[in-house]
Amino acid sequence: MRRVWVTRAETGASRTADRLTALGFEPVVVPLLAIRPIPQAAPDLSGIAALAFTSANGVAAFAALTPDRTRPAFTVGDATAQAARAAGFERVVSARGDLERLAALLIAQGAAVGPLLVPAALEPAGDLPALLRGRVEAKALPVYQAVETAAAAPAAFDAVLIHSARAARALAALGPFSGQTAVALSAAAAEPLGDRSGLKIRLARTPDETAQFAALGNPARRV
C-alpha cells in the first residue's frame, strides 16, 4: 500500500497528509466532510466550572465565540489538548483516549468539574453528557457541524483512512470499491461501512492516529 486517501476535513486532513508523507506514503487528500462553525452569540459561562472538548474542531469553534480562557479544559486526546493550549487555554488535561476515557477522567474529578460545558458538533459521534449523567452535571453546546462535500473518490488509491462514522457513511455511499483497505480509528467509526463496501477493513488498536498509522502498515516500495 502506498497511495492513501485522506477523507477527514481540513485542517486535520493536511496534518494527516504531512504525517503520511513523512512515513513514506503518498497521501491523496479528498475530504468527504467540511467543518462549518454554527453562528451564535458568545456563550453564557456563568456557573460553568469547566469545559470538555471532544475534538480540535470543537476547540476552534468555541474559541472563536469567546475570549474567555479562565476555566480548565478537559480533552479527549492529546491532539485536542494541543489545540486547546494553542487557543490560549492554560489548564488543560488530556484523557489520552476516547470518549469513554474522557468520561472516566471527568467522573474521577468529581463535583469539582461541574457544571460542565461540552462544546461539540451538532451531530456528535458520541454523547458525553449521557455518559456523565448522574455523576457530573454537563450540557452540550453545538458549535460546529460537519457537512458532506459530495466529493468523488480519487481515481486510484490503495488504502483509505476513516476518522469518524460520519465520514464512513459518506464513503459507503461512493462504493462499492474493489478490495482496497480501509483503516478506521475505531469500530464505531467503521460500522457504517457495513459488509458490502468492497473494502478490507482494519481497526486501530487504540482510537488515535498513531495507532491508525500502525494498522496501515508500511508503504510499498516504488517499482
Score class of each variant (00 low, 15 high):
residue 26 E to R: 15
residue 177 F to A: 01
residue 58 G to I: 10
residue 4 V to M: 03
residue 57 N to W: 01
residue 92 V to D: 07
residue 155 A to L: 09
residue 144 Y to H: 13
residue 196 R to D: 13
residue 60 A to L: 14
residue 199 L to R: 00
residue 114 G to W: 09
residue 180 Q to C: 03
residue 148 E to K: 13
residue 212 Q to A: 01
residue 78 D to N: 08
residue 43 P to V: 13
residue 172 A to C: 10
residue 14 S to Y: 15
residue 152 A to R: 14
residue 6 V to T: 03
residue 17 A to S: 09
residue 220 A to L: 10
residue 12 G to A: 15
residue 52 A to Y: 06
residue 66 T to V: 05
residue 211 A to E: 01
residue 222 R to N: 08
residue 2 R to K: 12
residue 149 T to K: 06
residue 161 L to N: 00
residue 23 L to R: 15
residue 42 A to T: 13
residue 1 M to P: 07
residue 188 A to L: 14
residue 184 A to P: 04
residue 69 R to M: 02
residue 12 G to T: 12
residue 149 T to Q: 08
residue 21 T to C: 10
residue 72 P to E: 02
residue 132 L to M: 01
residue 115 P to M: 12
residue 70 T to Y: 01
residue 153 A to N: 06
residue 24 G to S: 10
residue 88 G to A: 06
residue 71 R to W: 04
residue 137 E to C: 10
residue 176 P to G: 11
residue 119 P to D: 06
residue 204 A to C: 00
residue 195 D to Q: 14
residue 52 A to D: 03
residue 82 Q to K: 15
residue 135 R to I: 06
residue 29 V to M: 08
residue 96 R to S: 14
residue 6 V to K: 07
residue 185 L to Q: 03
residue 122 L to I: 05
residue 58 G to L: 10
residue 99 L to N: 10
residue 8 R to P: 02
residue 212 Q to I: 03
residue 32 L to E: 06
residue 140 A to H: 07
residue 200 K to Q: 14
residue 150 A to W: 09
residue 182 A to V: 06
residue 96 R to L: 12
residue 68 D to C: 01
residue 21 T to Q: 15
residue 219 P to G: 03
residue 5 W to Q: 10
residue 175 G to I: 07
residue 104 A to F: 05
residue 139 K to E: 14
residue 62 F to Y: 06
residue 59 V to A: 01
residue 185 L to N: 03
residue 163 H to L: 04
residue 167 A to C: 09
residue 188 A to K: 14
residue 166 R to I: 12
residue 25 F to K: 11
residue 119 P to L: 11
residue 74 F to K: 08
residue 205 R to M: 01
residue 58 G to N: 11
residue 30 V to Q: 13
residue 217 G to A: 03
residue 179 G to S: 08
residue 197 S to Q: 00
residue 94 S to Y: 04
residue 161 L to S: 01
residue 87 A to G: 05
residue 117 L to Y: 09
residue 22 A to Q: 15
residue 81 A to P: 04
residue 7 T to Q: 07
residue 194 G to L: 09
residue 8 R to G: 02
residue 93 V to S: 12
residue 14 S to W: 15
residue 187 A to C: 12
residue 152 A to S: 13
residue 25 F to A: 10
residue 99 L to V: 15
residue 24 G to C: 12
residue 3 R to T: 09
residue 86 A to Y: 14
residue 192 P to H: 11
residue 173 A to H: 09
residue 206 T to G: 03
residue 29 V to F: 06
residue 204 A to Q: 00
residue 39 P to V: 12
